[in-house]
């Protein structure tokens, strides 16, 4: 009997129980996500600083963004959070094929999001709204509008990079799930990438109103 639980399949030797192992895994993931909050937080702070000084320019900039595509992408990303949550549920209840299916659905929705983002980005290139030597703005407040698009590309670009990384990890987790690497006791990897994916969703939940919606009420 002695040490039987510590030799359970999937339980690392330095943990007493699966509960302890899961607690450590989730807590560790949240500590990482806190560093991510501060990572994005710098850009959010820059946004608040510049918008507080150049609200009119930021309103002009937000009018250049496609609110329909932005709203569709918000719905797509929230949908991917739902499938991600269901993948974790499938892992908790020991449904091997459902884990794989829900993760693949999450990757697919992530792909749709990035595809729409490519359409939006290419329109900005065509309209000379990408900051740099080719930036061209006929109206007033040109420096402020260029700053808006600096922040737009930095914030959505960093967000998109997180999605690409997340989709890559999701693919690995899907393969592991297919091979039967997870059990109702041990599925910390699924839960961990789930926490990451939901965090990326939360970042977009704030980016969408900040970049697309604020300033829409102002007639330009």
């Amino acid at each position: 009997m002695q040490g039987e639980s510590s030799h359970s399949w999937g339980l690392a030797h330095h943990f007493d129980s699966f509960d302890q192992q899961r607690e450590a895994s989730n807590l560790g993931m949240w500590v990482f996500l806190v560093t991510e909050i501060m990572f994005f937080g710098g850009l959010f702070t820059a946004y608040v600083v510049y918008r507080s000084g150049q609200g009119a320019a930021f309103a002009l900039g937000s009018h250049e963004l496609d609110i329909t595509l932005g709203a569709i992408n918000t719905a797509v990303l929230i949908g991917s959070s739902l499938t991600m949550a269901l993948a974790v549920w499938a892992a908790q209840t020991g449904r091997r094929k459902a884990i794989v299916g829900f993760i693949l659905a999450t990757i697919l929705l992530g792909g749709v999001f990035l595809g729409i983002k490519v359409v939006e980005y290419s329109a900005k290139f065509e309209h000379h709204l990408v900051p740099g030597p080719n930036f061209h703005w006929n109206g007033p407040e040109a420096p402020g509008v260029e700053m808006f698009f600096n922040l737009y590309f930095l914030m959505t670009g960093l967000h998109a990079a997180h999605m690409v990384i997340g989709m890559g990890i999701l693919l690995v987790v899907a393969i592991l799930a297919w091979r039967g690497a997870f059990s109702p006791e041990n599925h910390n990897l699924v839960e961990g990438i789930g926490l990451y994916w939901h965090f990326v969703d939360i970042v977009w939940i704030f980016l969408f109103p900040l970049l697309y919606l604020l300033g829409r009420n102002i007639q330009v």
Partner: peptide, 12 residues
């Protein structure tokens, strides 16, 4: 875990 989550947003 709840304390860590709240602390993260508080510091933001």
């Amino acid at each position: 875990t709840k304390v860590v989550v709240v602390a993260g947003f508080l510091w933001l």
